[in-house]
Amino acid sequence: MSDLRELYQQVILDHNKNPRNFHEMAGATSKVDGYNPLCGDHYTIFLQVDGDTVKDVSFTGSGCAISKASASVMSATVKGKSRDEIAKLFDTFHSLVTGEGGSANAAELGRLAAFSGVSEFPARVKCATLAWHTLNAALKGDSQSVTTE
């Protein structure tokens, strides 16, 4: 059970049950779909970008607890941050969930640290990163949908 408790930390269970910013956004500056075709996970990320700053983020869709909690925590974390800050956070988060970055800086990650258990479950890395890849595409101005396969 210990690995499972590591994976399904309280923060994840909470964000899965009560996802933050879980709604469509009127007046979004961009909107991108993210799919995981093998799982059937599907989210839409809405952004309001002002110059270099992501003013607002929201999302809709459905998927597993890991993917939904990740989208929720991400939306709460990146709000008000610059493109560069978000890109660095994604790098750190990616290293954390793939277990490739050694010990990530917990202070830097904040709530995102709740996803540390994912590295023990390689099959679930794509769940944890789906929303991030989708956000990335939205920031790059890709209007096409992205997939994690």
């Binding site: 499972l4 799982c39 597993c64 607890a65 939904k68």
Partner: peptide, 25 residues
Amino acid sequence: VHPHDIGTILDQEGIAIRTGHHCAQ
């Protein structure tokens, strides 16, 4: 509980099931 989470937890018990759309979207 989403099927993927079910699959991961069962896997920890050594139980292999399939989760997903089963190539029948």
